[in-house]
Amino acid sequence: MLLGPSLALSAILFSLGVAGVLLRRNAIVLFMCIELMLNAVNLTFVALSRLYGAGGYVMVFFVMTVAAAEAAVGLAIILAIFRHEQSVDLENINLLRG
């Protein structure tokens, strides 16, 4: 059935995504790590929909849609930031600093 191993793989991929977000400063790589986390979650949905029915597949579609939308808008934001800062290094983007 591969339920346990699938979930474990999903967990490892998700953790790697978190690690990437924490470690990298490049905004685009950050985005890719977020995509990685979304993929890990998708794997969970697919694995569990063998038990709970086709709702999991539908949810995967929604996640993909959101991911696509997020990628489009997020990359547009990065473009705008790059135009302004000439960099996508997050160290340089700290408008929220108290």
Binding site: M1, L7, A8, A11, L51
Partner: peptide, 10 residues
């Protein structure tokens, strides 16, 4: 925390 999922079967 998440690796405990490894052993899960239906």
């Amino acid at each position: 925390e998440l690796a405990t999922l490894w052993r899960y079967t239906p």
